[in-house]
Simulated scan of single mutants.
Amino acid sequence: MTDRSPFAPSRRRLLRTAAAGVLAVGAGAVAGPLLAAPAQAYPWGGTLRQGASGTAVRELQIRVAGWAASSAAKVYIAVDGQFGPATFGAVERFQRAYGLAVDGVVGPNTQAKLNALAKGDGSTAHFAWSEMWDSYTSSFAGGAVSAASAQENVRRTMYKLEALRVKIGNLPIHINSGFRNKQHNADVGGIVGSMHTYGAAADMYVAGLANRVIYQHAETCGFSGLERYTIDHQHVDSQAEFGRSWWWESGVI
C-alpha cells in the first residue's frame, strides 16, 4: 500500500514540470502485461492468500484496486505481485461488497466473482473499450505510451471504475473522456502530459447524482487525481502510480 501526501501547487504547474522528467519513469513502470491474456475466466491456478506472489497476484491486485480503502485515504494497491496486508484488506472489502465470505482468501467463489467482472475481450462488465478509447481514432494509439500500454492502463482504470460503480449504488457511469491521443488532448485544452494520454484517467457523470458524491466515493478507490467536483463532470486518475504527487483538488470531503 502506498500513502503519499497531497500537494499544494497548482495542477497545471506541477504536471507540466512532471511531464519533463518523472513521467518517463512512470511510463515504464506501469506498462505491465499486454492485454490479450486476461479474458473472462482468468486461470488463477489455485487459492491465493496472504504471502502468495506471482502473476496471478498481480492480476488480483488490478481487479481489486478500486477497493483500496474503506474511507477517504490517499492509498492505492501496488501491482507488484506480492500478496501483502494492503491486498488482503482490498480483497476483504471486495468480498463484503459482493456478499462473499469475508476472509481475505481468494478461493473459488471469490475468483468466480472476479472473473464475472471481466468480458472475453479483456474489458470489464460495465465498461467497453469503445467508451474509453480515443474518440478521434477509435484506438489507443498516439498517446504518451504505446497503444498496448495505454490499453492496459485503461483496463486498470476500468476495474477501479467497477468498484466506484458499486459504491454509488450500481448506478451507470457515463464516460465523457477516457484515453486521448496527444492531438486530441491538445485540441480540447488538456495539459501536456495529461493522464488521459496514458489511459489512466476518466471524465464521467452519473445521471441524477451530484459530482460531490462521486468524488467522495472515489476517495476510497485508489484514485490519486481528483478534479474539483463543482464542474460539469468528475475527473479521476491514477497519477501517483506514475511517480506524481497526490492531487485531490477539493481536498478530503
Rank of each mutant, 00 (worst) to 15 (best):
L161W: 14
A68F: 11
V91D: 01
M132G: 10
G143M: 04
G89T: 09
P85W: 12
A90F: 12
F140T: 15
R93L: 09
V91Y: 04
H174F: 04
V102K: 04
W129P: 01
Q151K: 15
R155W: 09
G66I: 07
P172S: 08
H174I: 12
R93E: 00
N170S: 15
A65F: 03
M158S: 01
A118W: 06
A69M: 03
F140W: 14
V166K: 15
T124D: 01
L164H: 10
A118N: 11
W129F: 13
A141M: 07
F83E: 01
W129D: 06
Q95P: 03
I173F: 08
P108Q: 02
A97P: 05
V75C: 08
I175A: 06
L60D: 00
G104Q: 00
A72C: 10
V154H: 12
G84W: 05
S149D: 04
L171Y: 00
V64C: 05
N176R: 09
G143K: 13
Y136H: 14
R155C: 02
V145K: 11
A147V: 09
S135Y: 09
S139H: 07
A68S: 13
R156F: 06
E92I: 08
Y159L: 02
E59G: 11
G81H: 04
V57Y: 02
A125W: 09
N153R: 08
N109A: 15
V64S: 05
G81Q: 01
L117R: 10
N109M: 10
D80E: 03
D80C: 12
A65Y: 04
K74P: 04
A68Q: 03
Y98V: 13
I175G: 01
F140K: 12
D121K: 15
A97L: 13
S123Q: 09
A78R: 15
M132D: 02
A73V: 06
Y159V: 00
Q111M: 02
Q61E: 06
K167A: 13
Q82H: 14
E162W: 11
H174S: 11
E131D: 12
W129V: 02
M132T: 06
L171N: 10
G122P: 07
G107F: 01
L117E: 06
E131H: 08
A150K: 13
V91G: 02
